[in-house]
Nucleic acid binder design. Structure first.
Lengths: 197, 197
DNA sequence: GGACTGACAGATATTGAAATCTGTCATCTG
DNA sequence: CAGATGACAGATTTCAATATCTGTCAGTCC
Protein backbone atom coordinates (compact mmCIF):
# COMPACT_ATOMS: atom_id res chain seq x y z
CA UNK A 1 0.00 0.00 0.00
CA UNK A 2 1.33 3.46 -0.87
CA UNK A 3 2.05 6.00 1.92
CA UNK A 4 -0.92 7.65 3.63
CA UNK A 5 -0.43 10.97 1.87
CA UNK A 6 -1.01 9.28 -1.48
CA UNK A 7 -3.73 6.82 -0.50
CA UNK A 8 -7.15 7.86 -1.73
CA UNK A 9 -9.39 8.01 1.34
CA UNK A 10 -12.87 9.34 1.92
CA UNK A 11 -11.29 11.98 4.13
CA UNK A 12 -8.96 13.24 1.41
CA UNK A 13 -11.84 13.34 -1.06
CA UNK A 14 -13.93 15.40 1.37
CA UNK A 15 -11.10 17.89 1.83
CA UNK A 16 -10.61 18.22 -1.91
CA UNK A 17 -14.37 18.63 -2.39
CA UNK A 18 -14.48 21.44 0.15
CA UNK A 19 -11.67 23.18 -1.68
CA UNK A 20 -13.38 22.76 -5.06
CA UNK A 21 -16.64 24.08 -3.61
CA UNK A 22 -14.79 27.05 -2.14
CA UNK A 23 -13.17 27.83 -5.49
CA UNK A 24 -15.96 27.10 -7.96
CA UNK A 25 -19.14 27.47 -5.90
CA UNK A 26 -21.93 24.90 -5.60
CA UNK A 27 -23.28 25.27 -9.14
CA UNK A 28 -20.00 24.67 -10.96
CA UNK A 29 -18.25 22.22 -8.64
CA UNK A 30 -18.15 18.88 -10.45
CA UNK A 31 -16.96 15.44 -9.52
CA UNK A 32 -14.48 15.71 -12.37
CA UNK A 33 -13.02 18.82 -10.72
CA UNK A 34 -12.62 16.96 -7.44
CA UNK A 35 -10.90 14.06 -9.19
CA UNK A 36 -8.60 16.44 -11.06
CA UNK A 37 -7.66 18.20 -7.78
CA UNK A 38 -6.68 14.80 -6.38
CA UNK A 39 -4.89 13.68 -9.55
CA UNK A 40 -7.16 10.65 -10.04
CA UNK A 41 -9.92 9.72 -12.44
CA UNK A 42 -13.47 10.57 -11.46
CA UNK A 43 -14.28 6.86 -11.44
CA UNK A 44 -12.12 6.53 -8.32
CA UNK A 45 -14.20 9.09 -6.47
CA UNK A 46 -17.29 7.01 -7.19
CA UNK A 47 -15.61 4.09 -5.42
CA UNK A 48 -15.91 6.05 -2.14
CA UNK A 49 -19.18 7.92 -2.68
CA UNK A 50 -22.06 6.31 -4.51
CA UNK A 51 -23.33 9.57 -6.04
CA UNK A 52 -22.42 13.22 -6.28
CA UNK A 53 -25.32 13.96 -3.90
CA UNK A 54 -23.84 11.58 -1.30
CA UNK A 55 -20.47 13.32 -1.58
CA UNK A 56 -22.06 16.73 -1.11
CA UNK A 57 -24.09 15.52 1.84
CA UNK A 58 -20.95 14.13 3.51
CA UNK A 59 -19.24 17.50 3.12
CA UNK A 60 -22.30 19.21 4.59
CA UNK A 61 -22.40 16.83 7.54
CA UNK A 62 -18.74 17.47 8.33
CA UNK A 63 -19.31 21.20 8.23
CA UNK A 64 -22.37 21.04 10.49
CA UNK A 65 -20.62 18.71 12.93
CA UNK A 66 -17.84 21.27 13.43
CA UNK A 67 -20.40 23.72 14.84
CA UNK A 68 -22.01 21.07 17.05
CA UNK A 69 -18.61 20.24 18.51
CA UNK A 70 -17.87 23.87 19.33
CA UNK A 71 -21.11 24.09 21.32
CA UNK A 72 -21.18 20.75 23.09
CA UNK A 73 -18.47 21.90 25.49
CA UNK A 74 -20.70 24.68 26.78
CA UNK A 75 -23.77 22.45 27.05
CA UNK A 76 -22.03 19.89 29.24
CA UNK A 77 -19.99 22.26 31.40
CA UNK A 78 -21.53 21.50 34.81
CA UNK A 79 -19.32 24.06 36.58
CA UNK A 80 -21.49 27.01 35.56
CA UNK A 81 -25.13 27.72 36.39
CA UNK A 82 -27.71 26.73 33.77
CA UNK A 83 -28.92 30.25 32.94
CA UNK A 84 -25.40 31.45 32.18
CA UNK A 85 -24.75 28.33 30.15
CA UNK A 86 -27.96 28.81 28.16
CA UNK A 87 -27.16 32.44 27.38
CA UNK A 88 -23.58 31.57 26.51
CA UNK A 89 -24.60 28.64 24.34
CA UNK A 90 -27.06 30.72 22.31
CA UNK A 91 -24.67 33.67 22.07
CA UNK A 92 -21.90 31.36 20.87
CA UNK A 93 -24.18 29.78 18.27
CA UNK A 94 -25.19 33.21 17.04
CA UNK A 95 -21.59 34.46 16.98
CA UNK A 96 -20.38 31.38 15.10
CA UNK A 97 -23.05 31.71 12.44
CA UNK A 98 -22.57 35.42 12.08
CA UNK A 99 -18.82 35.02 11.77
CA UNK A 100 -19.16 32.37 9.07
CA UNK A 101 -21.68 34.44 7.13
CA UNK A 102 -19.66 37.63 7.48
CA UNK A 103 -16.13 36.37 6.88
CA UNK A 104 -16.80 34.54 3.63
CA UNK A 105 -20.30 35.23 2.30
CA UNK A 106 -19.75 33.20 -0.85
CA UNK A 107 -18.70 30.11 1.07
CA UNK A 108 -21.64 30.60 3.40
CA UNK A 109 -23.98 30.84 0.41
CA UNK A 110 -22.42 27.64 -0.89
CA UNK A 111 -23.26 25.84 2.34
CA UNK A 112 -26.78 27.26 2.26
CA UNK A 113 -27.26 25.58 -1.11
CA UNK A 114 -25.76 22.34 0.21
CA UNK A 115 -27.95 22.28 3.31
CA UNK A 116 -31.02 22.98 1.17
CA UNK A 117 -30.39 19.90 -0.94
CA UNK A 118 -29.21 17.74 1.94
CA UNK A 119 -31.74 15.13 2.93
CA UNK A 120 -31.33 14.35 6.60
CA UNK A 121 -28.06 16.09 7.49
CA UNK A 122 -29.75 19.28 8.60
CA UNK A 123 -32.49 17.48 10.50
CA UNK A 124 -29.83 15.44 12.31
CA UNK A 125 -27.88 18.57 13.11
CA UNK A 126 -30.96 20.32 14.50
CA UNK A 127 -31.75 17.23 16.57
CA UNK A 128 -28.19 17.29 17.91
CA UNK A 129 -28.34 20.96 18.88
CA UNK A 130 -31.80 20.58 20.40
CA UNK A 131 -30.43 17.69 22.45
CA UNK A 132 -27.67 19.93 23.79
CA UNK A 133 -30.25 22.57 24.73
CA UNK A 134 -32.34 19.89 26.44
CA UNK A 135 -29.35 19.01 28.63
CA UNK A 136 -29.00 22.62 29.74
CA UNK A 137 -32.73 22.84 30.49
CA UNK A 138 -32.56 19.59 32.46
CA UNK A 139 -29.66 20.95 34.50
CA UNK A 140 -31.78 23.98 35.29
CA UNK A 141 -34.77 21.90 36.31
CA UNK A 142 -32.57 19.77 38.56
CA UNK A 143 -30.98 22.79 40.22
CA UNK A 144 -34.39 24.40 40.66
CA UNK A 145 -33.52 27.42 38.49
CA UNK A 146 -35.79 26.49 35.58
CA UNK A 147 -39.38 25.27 35.40
CA UNK A 148 -40.19 22.90 32.55
CA UNK A 149 -42.65 19.99 32.47
CA UNK A 150 -40.87 18.61 29.38
CA UNK A 151 -37.26 19.74 28.82
CA UNK A 152 -37.07 18.22 25.33
CA UNK A 153 -40.15 20.16 24.27
CA UNK A 154 -38.85 23.33 25.88
CA UNK A 155 -35.52 22.84 24.13
CA UNK A 156 -37.31 22.65 20.77
CA UNK A 157 -39.14 25.87 21.61
CA UNK A 158 -35.88 27.59 22.57
CA UNK A 159 -34.24 26.55 19.33
CA UNK A 160 -37.19 27.61 17.22
CA UNK A 161 -37.73 30.97 18.93
CA UNK A 162 -34.09 31.91 18.41
CA UNK A 163 -34.14 30.95 14.74
CA UNK A 164 -33.67 34.54 13.68
CA UNK A 165 -30.18 34.41 15.22
CA UNK A 166 -28.97 31.13 13.80
CA UNK A 167 -31.12 30.16 10.84
CA UNK A 168 -29.27 30.91 7.59
CA UNK A 169 -32.45 32.27 6.01
CA UNK A 170 -31.98 35.34 8.22
CA UNK A 171 -28.27 35.73 7.44
CA UNK A 172 -28.95 39.00 5.64
CA UNK A 173 -30.23 40.58 8.87
CA UNK A 174 -27.16 39.69 10.92
CA UNK A 175 -25.30 42.82 9.88
CA UNK A 176 -28.05 45.21 10.96
CA UNK A 177 -26.92 47.54 13.73
CA UNK A 178 -29.71 46.73 16.20
CA UNK A 179 -29.46 42.97 15.89
CA UNK A 180 -27.67 42.74 19.24
CA UNK A 181 -30.50 44.62 20.91
CA UNK A 182 -33.01 42.24 19.37
CA UNK A 183 -30.97 39.26 20.51
CA UNK A 184 -30.86 40.51 24.08
CA UNK A 185 -34.59 41.27 24.10
CA UNK A 186 -35.39 37.76 22.86
CA UNK A 187 -33.04 36.12 25.32
CA UNK A 188 -34.44 38.11 28.25
CA UNK A 189 -38.00 37.16 27.33
CA UNK A 190 -37.13 33.49 26.97
CA UNK A 191 -35.09 33.26 30.17
CA UNK A 192 -37.89 34.97 32.06
CA UNK A 193 -40.31 32.37 30.72
CA UNK A 194 -37.98 29.61 31.82
CA UNK A 195 -37.18 30.72 35.35
CA UNK A 196 -39.09 29.42 38.35
CA UNK A 197 -41.42 32.28 39.22
CA UNK B 1 -65.50 60.76 -18.86
CA UNK B 2 -66.32 57.16 -19.77
CA UNK B 3 -68.16 54.93 -17.25
CA UNK B 4 -66.10 53.68 -14.31
CA UNK B 5 -65.92 50.14 -15.64
CA UNK B 6 -64.02 51.36 -18.68
CA UNK B 7 -61.81 54.01 -17.06
CA UNK B 8 -58.23 52.88 -16.62
CA UNK B 9 -57.42 53.33 -12.94
CA UNK B 10 -54.50 52.20 -10.79
CA UNK B 11 -56.95 49.91 -8.99
CA UNK B 12 -58.04 48.15 -12.20
CA UNK B 13 -54.41 47.72 -13.23
CA UNK B 14 -53.57 46.16 -9.86
CA UNK B 15 -56.45 43.71 -10.17
CA UNK B 16 -55.40 42.73 -13.67
CA UNK B 17 -51.79 42.36 -12.51
CA UNK B 18 -52.83 40.02 -9.70
CA UNK B 19 -54.72 37.91 -12.21
CA UNK B 20 -51.79 37.80 -14.63
CA UNK B 21 -49.44 36.84 -11.79
CA UNK B 22 -51.86 34.11 -10.71
CA UNK B 23 -52.03 32.71 -14.26
CA UNK B 24 -48.46 33.11 -15.46
CA UNK B 25 -46.38 33.17 -12.27
CA UNK B 26 -43.86 35.84 -11.29
CA UNK B 27 -41.21 34.92 -13.87
CA UNK B 28 -43.46 35.10 -16.94
CA UNK B 29 -45.89 37.86 -15.97
CA UNK B 30 -45.10 40.83 -18.22
CA UNK B 31 -46.41 44.37 -18.41
CA UNK B 32 -47.56 43.54 -21.94
CA UNK B 33 -49.69 40.70 -20.51
CA UNK B 34 -51.30 43.10 -18.04
CA UNK B 35 -52.05 45.62 -20.79
CA UNK B 36 -53.51 42.89 -23.01
CA UNK B 37 -55.75 41.69 -20.14
CA UNK B 38 -57.06 45.24 -19.83
CA UNK B 39 -57.40 45.78 -23.58
CA UNK B 40 -55.00 48.73 -23.63
CA UNK B 41 -51.48 49.31 -24.83
CA UNK B 42 -48.64 48.75 -22.38
CA UNK B 43 -47.74 52.44 -22.67
CA UNK B 44 -50.97 53.23 -20.80
CA UNK B 45 -49.91 51.08 -17.87
CA UNK B 46 -46.70 53.09 -17.60
CA UNK B 47 -48.83 56.21 -17.17
CA UNK B 48 -49.97 54.85 -13.77
CA UNK B 49 -46.81 52.98 -12.62
CA UNK B 50 -43.38 54.33 -13.41
CA UNK B 51 -41.74 50.92 -13.69
CA UNK B 52 -42.62 47.24 -13.66
CA UNK B 53 -40.97 47.00 -10.23
CA UNK B 54 -43.27 49.75 -8.89
CA UNK B 55 -46.30 47.90 -10.22
CA UNK B 56 -45.21 44.66 -8.57
CA UNK B 57 -44.49 46.41 -5.30
CA UNK B 58 -47.95 47.97 -5.30
CA UNK B 59 -49.51 44.52 -5.78
CA UNK B 60 -47.39 43.19 -2.91
CA UNK B 61 -48.38 46.04 -0.62
CA UNK B 62 -52.09 45.41 -1.30
CA UNK B 63 -51.65 41.73 -0.53
CA UNK B 64 -49.78 42.36 2.73
CA UNK B 65 -52.27 45.01 3.82
CA UNK B 66 -55.11 42.49 3.58
CA UNK B 67 -53.45 40.38 6.30
CA UNK B 68 -52.77 43.41 8.49
CA UNK B 69 -56.44 44.36 8.28
CA UNK B 70 -57.58 40.89 9.31
CA UNK B 71 -55.45 41.12 12.47
CA UNK B 72 -55.98 44.70 13.53
CA UNK B 73 -59.47 43.89 14.78
CA UNK B 74 -58.06 41.43 17.31
CA UNK B 75 -55.29 43.79 18.43
CA UNK B 76 -57.68 46.61 19.26
CA UNK B 77 -60.51 44.55 20.79
CA UNK B 78 -60.46 45.91 24.34
CA UNK B 79 -63.29 43.62 25.46
CA UNK B 80 -60.99 40.63 25.92
CA UNK B 81 -58.03 40.19 28.24
CA UNK B 82 -54.56 40.80 26.77
CA UNK B 83 -53.26 37.24 27.10
CA UNK B 84 -56.22 35.82 25.20
CA UNK B 85 -55.87 38.53 22.58
CA UNK B 86 -52.15 37.84 22.19
CA UNK B 87 -52.70 34.11 21.76
CA UNK B 88 -55.58 34.69 19.38
CA UNK B 89 -53.65 37.26 17.34
CA UNK B 90 -50.66 34.97 16.88
CA UNK B 91 -52.85 31.93 16.18
CA UNK B 92 -54.81 33.92 13.59
CA UNK B 93 -51.62 35.11 11.92
CA UNK B 94 -50.32 31.56 11.79
CA UNK B 95 -53.63 30.20 10.49
CA UNK B 96 -53.86 32.89 7.79
CA UNK B 97 -50.35 32.21 6.54
CA UNK B 98 -50.79 28.46 6.63
CA UNK B 99 -54.08 28.67 4.79
CA UNK B 100 -52.57 30.86 2.05
CA UNK B 101 -49.57 28.58 1.68
CA UNK B 102 -51.67 25.41 1.70
CA UNK B 103 -54.60 26.43 -0.48
CA UNK B 104 -52.61 27.73 -3.42
CA UNK B 105 -48.90 26.94 -3.10
CA UNK B 106 -48.08 28.40 -6.49
CA UNK B 107 -49.69 31.74 -5.70
CA UNK B 108 -47.95 31.74 -2.35
CA UNK B 109 -44.62 31.08 -4.06
CA UNK B 110 -45.40 33.96 -6.39
CA UNK B 111 -45.87 36.32 -3.46
CA UNK B 112 -42.67 35.02 -1.86
CA UNK B 113 -40.81 36.11 -4.99
CA UNK B 114 -42.57 39.49 -4.94
CA UNK B 115 -41.82 40.12 -1.27
CA UNK B 116 -38.18 39.18 -1.84
CA UNK B 117 -37.78 41.84 -4.50
CA UNK B 118 -39.95 44.42 -2.75
CA UNK B 119 -37.90 47.21 -1.26
CA UNK B 120 -39.75 48.59 1.75
CA UNK B 121 -43.18 46.93 1.51
CA UNK B 122 -42.21 44.02 3.73
CA UNK B 123 -40.41 46.21 6.26
CA UNK B 124 -43.50 48.43 6.46
CA UNK B 125 -45.72 45.40 6.92
CA UNK B 126 -43.55 44.03 9.71
CA UNK B 127 -43.55 47.44 11.38
CA UNK B 128 -47.35 47.49 11.15
CA UNK B 129 -47.73 44.04 12.69
CA UNK B 130 -45.19 44.78 15.40
CA UNK B 131 -47.15 47.93 16.21
CA UNK B 132 -50.31 45.85 16.66
CA UNK B 133 -48.44 43.50 19.00
CA UNK B 134 -47.12 46.50 20.94
CA UNK B 135 -50.73 47.62 21.55
CA UNK B 136 -51.61 44.24 23.00
CA UNK B 137 -48.53 44.27 25.23
CA UNK B 138 -49.38 47.79 26.37
CA UNK B 139 -52.90 46.68 27.27
CA UNK B 140 -51.39 43.91 29.34
CA UNK B 141 -49.01 46.23 31.13
CA UNK B 142 -51.86 48.63 31.90
CA UNK B 143 -54.08 45.87 33.26
CA UNK B 144 -51.21 44.46 35.30
CA UNK B 145 -51.23 41.11 33.50
CA UNK B 146 -47.93 41.61 31.65
CA UNK B 147 -44.55 42.91 32.74
CA UNK B 148 -42.56 44.80 30.11
CA UNK B 149 -40.16 47.71 30.56
CA UNK B 150 -40.48 48.54 26.85
CA UNK B 151 -43.59 47.22 25.06
CA UNK B 152 -42.29 48.12 21.60
CA UNK B 153 -39.12 46.16 22.22
CA UNK B 154 -41.08 43.24 23.67
CA UNK B 155 -43.39 43.32 20.65
CA UNK B 156 -40.38 43.00 18.33
CA UNK B 157 -39.16 40.04 20.37
CA UNK B 158 -42.60 38.40 20.20
CA UNK B 159 -42.74 38.82 16.44
CA UNK B 160 -39.24 37.51 15.92
CA UNK B 161 -39.55 34.53 18.23
CA UNK B 162 -42.71 33.38 16.45
CA UNK B 163 -41.14 33.72 13.01
CA UNK B 164 -41.25 29.98 12.47
CA UNK B 165 -45.07 30.25 12.41
CA UNK B 166 -45.48 33.19 10.08
CA UNK B 167 -42.28 33.75 8.13
CA UNK B 168 -42.67 32.40 4.59
CA UNK B 169 -39.16 30.91 4.69
CA UNK B 170 -40.62 28.24 6.99
CA UNK B 171 -43.71 27.57 4.84
CA UNK B 172 -42.46 24.08 4.05
CA UNK B 173 -42.67 23.12 7.75
CA UNK B 174 -46.29 24.22 8.19
CA UNK B 175 -47.68 20.90 7.01
CA UNK B 176 -45.68 18.83 9.51
CA UNK B 177 -47.92 16.93 11.92
CA UNK B 178 -46.34 18.24 15.14
CA UNK B 179 -46.31 21.89 14.13
CA UNK B 180 -49.30 22.60 16.38
CA UNK B 181 -47.45 21.12 19.36
CA UNK B 182 -44.45 23.31 18.60
CA UNK B 183 -46.66 26.36 18.29
CA UNK B 184 -48.26 25.71 21.66
CA UNK B 185 -44.88 25.10 23.31
CA UNK B 186 -43.52 28.39 21.94
CA UNK B 187 -46.63 30.34 22.94
CA UNK B 188 -46.59 28.89 26.46
CA UNK B 189 -42.95 29.82 26.92
CA UNK B 190 -43.46 33.36 25.63
CA UNK B 191 -46.61 34.03 27.64
CA UNK B 192 -44.89 32.75 30.78
CA UNK B 193 -42.05 35.18 30.12
CA UNK B 194 -44.52 37.99 29.69
CA UNK B 195 -46.74 37.46 32.70
CA UNK B 196 -46.17 39.29 35.97
CA UNK B 197 -44.51 36.68 38.15
C1' DG C 1 -6.98 -9.49 -6.71
C1' DG C 2 -8.11 -5.03 -5.11
C1' DA C 3 -7.55 -0.30 -6.60
C1' DC C 4 -7.79 2.40 -10.50
C1' DT C 5 -8.80 3.84 -15.41
C1' DG C 6 -11.19 5.72 -19.31
C1' DA C 7 -14.77 5.01 -22.88
C1' DC C 8 -19.52 5.27 -23.00
C1' DA C 9 -24.92 6.46 -22.78
C1' DG C 10 -28.07 9.36 -20.98
C1' DA C 11 -28.76 13.57 -18.33
C1' DT C 12 -27.53 18.30 -17.54
C1' DA C 13 -25.36 22.70 -18.50
C1' DT C 14 -23.54 26.27 -21.71
C1' DT C 15 -23.78 29.28 -25.49
C1' DG C 16 -25.08 32.52 -28.88
C1' DA C 17 -28.57 33.92 -32.17
C1' DA C 18 -33.37 35.15 -32.42
C1' DA C 19 -37.47 36.62 -30.06
C1' DT C 20 -39.58 39.21 -26.54
C1' DC C 21 -39.87 42.67 -23.09
C1' DT C 22 -39.13 47.27 -20.74
C1' DG C 23 -39.41 52.00 -20.71
C1' DT C 24 -39.57 56.32 -23.74
C1' DC C 25 -41.66 59.51 -26.57
C1' DA C 26 -43.44 61.71 -30.81
C1' DT C 27 -47.87 61.36 -32.44
C1' DC C 28 -52.81 60.72 -32.50
C1' DT C 29 -57.69 61.15 -30.95
C1' DG C 30 -62.06 62.66 -28.86
C1' DC D 1 -55.43 69.11 -23.97
C1' DA D 2 -55.55 64.92 -21.12
C1' DG D 3 -55.17 60.44 -22.01
C1' DA D 4 -53.96 56.74 -25.10
C1' DT D 5 -51.11 54.71 -28.76
C1' DG D 6 -47.45 52.03 -31.04
C1' DA D 7 -42.74 52.26 -32.99
C1' DC D 8 -38.34 52.12 -31.21
C1' DA D 9 -33.52 51.17 -28.67
C1' DG D 10 -31.42 48.68 -25.37
C1' DA D 11 -31.94 44.99 -21.98
C1' DT D 12 -33.57 40.49 -21.03
C1' DT D 13 -35.31 35.96 -22.09
C1' DT D 14 -35.91 31.84 -24.96
C1' DC D 15 -34.46 27.98 -27.50
C1' DA D 16 -31.90 24.67 -29.81
C1' DA D 17 -27.35 23.12 -30.94
C1' DT D 18 -23.24 21.95 -28.62
C1' DA D 19 -20.35 20.74 -24.86
C1' DT D 20 -19.78 18.89 -20.38
C1' DC D 21 -21.00 16.02 -16.62
C1' DT D 22 -22.76 11.84 -14.05
C1' DG D 23 -22.66 7.23 -13.10
C1' DT D 24 -21.38 2.47 -15.01
C1' DC D 25 -18.42 -1.14 -16.11
C1' DA D 26 -15.26 -3.98 -18.82
C1' DG D 27 -10.66 -3.95 -18.74
C1' DT D 28 -5.69 -2.43 -16.96
C1' DC D 29 -2.06 -2.22 -13.68
C1' DC D 30 0.60 -3.05 -9.80
Amino acid sequence: MAPTAETLTAERILEATEEVLRRHGPAKATVVDVARALGVSHGSVYRHFRTKAALREAVTKRWLDRTSQELSGIATDASRDPETRLRDWLATLFAAKRRKAGDDPELFATYMVLTDESGSAVADHVADLTGQLARIVESGVESGAFASPDPARTARALFQTTGRFHDPCYAGDWTRPDIETDFTAVLDLLVRGLRTS
